[in-house]
Amino acid sequence: MPELPEVEIVRQSLHKKIKKKSIKKVIIRNRNLRFKIPSDFESFLKNKKIIEVSRFSKYLIIHFQNEDYFLIHLGMSGTIHILDKKKPLKFTNTSFYHSPFLPKKHNHAEFIFDSLKVIYNDPRRFGFFEIINNYQDLQKRFKLMGPEPFSDKFNLNYVVNYFKKKNKDIKSFLLDQRFVSGIGNIYASEILFASKINPFKKAKRLNKNECLDIISNSKKILQQAINKGGSSIRDFKDISGNKGTFQKEFKVYQQEGANCKRTKCKGIIKKKITSNRSTFFCVSCQK
């Protein structure tokens, strides 16, 4: 599943390509995504002018001129492809998941502009679309979600108070979107390694310095991943022909059996599966 950095790369590509453009036509080939696309979806979006593409957590937010909003969540396997008539693109994929080229199957929706087509592809159909009618409803939509790691609200006071008397392990909290929004399995493992914290340590046992390390390393690692184009696990390219290279920076993720990369640590990276998720950590320096 794309995590915050990968969704941010998609956002940047879309913002660059469709800002200030109007949707001329919408074609829905399959309405059965995670939530069924309503019958008036096409007419609602037709002739809407886009003023911005933003993001919250793993959600893409299309802002329209009349203050309506269109949310896109990519789910497990969703990708967005851009076809440009004026400047044909060798690589159509705005992210690094699945084929860099437009697939022939599972193209469920097309958003047609004057010289562009934006196509939503999703083999597993866990992604979804959502229309929001005003800013107040947009705020309510994310009310139950935690702050993003980059937010000023993700601070020591918030984290310490949230962890009080909590028996759940810290790795589970980093994946819990009610606590913090946008972190997934890859980056949770990397953040905890950078913080020298065992993923299975109870949250209530973390001291203030450990909480500060988690806050700091969350911001640092996610920003590094964005700067490097995300993690291109399958080594594919985006619409500019660039590859996400953060996977070259992995210290623990998918490093099972390797020597710890921390200087002077002689530990080995271990993999443990809990709740169908793989957790990677150093058995020596993550306490």
Rank of each mutant, 00 (worst) to 15 (best):
T94Q: 00
D169K: 14
A258L: 15
S216H: 13
Y59C: 06
P38G: 12
K20W: 00
E110W: 03
N93K: 09
E190Q: 10
S189R: 03
F128P: 08
K46H: 10
K166Y: 11
C282G: 06
V53C: 10
P5I: 02
K90V: 12
R234S: 14
L4W: 11
G78L: 00
K49I: 05
N32F: 13
M145H: 15
K105W: 11
F113A: 11
I80C: 06
R141M: 07
V53L: 01
I233Q: 02
L175H: 07
P5F: 00
P2E: 06
K251N: 12
V7T: 04
F150M: 07
R277S: 08
S54Y: 12
S43G: 11
A225C: 13
F101D: 10
R178Y: 08
K220I: 12
I131M: 12
V160S: 13
D213Q: 03
F96R: 06
D238Q: 06
I23C: 09
G146M: 08
K48Q: 01
H106E: 07
I221G: 04
G78E: 01
K105T: 13
I131F: 13
E210M: 03
F129D: 00
V53M: 05
N217K: 12
D152N: 15
R178K: 12
H63L: 06
L138I: 11
K261Q: 15
F281Y: 10
I9L: 06
K49R: 08
F246H: 02
K117F: 01
Q224T: 14
K105C: 03
N121K: 09
N198W: 11
K248Q: 15
S172P: 14
K90A: 10
F246I: 05
L206Q: 00
D169N: 15
R55S: 07
L71D: 01
K36V: 09
K202I: 08
N30V: 07
S216I: 14
R11N: 01
S181H: 00
N155P: 03
L206A: 00
Y97G: 06
R124G: 02
K248R: 15
N217G: 06
I119F: 11
I28F: 08
M76P: 04
N133C: 12
D169V: 13
T274I: 15
F111E: 05
G78W: 08
F128I: 06
I82Q: 02
H98P: 03
D40I: 11
K168C: 13
E6H: 10
F246W: 09
R125T: 00
K248G: 13
K164W: 12
L45T: 06
L144Q: 14
Y97D: 01
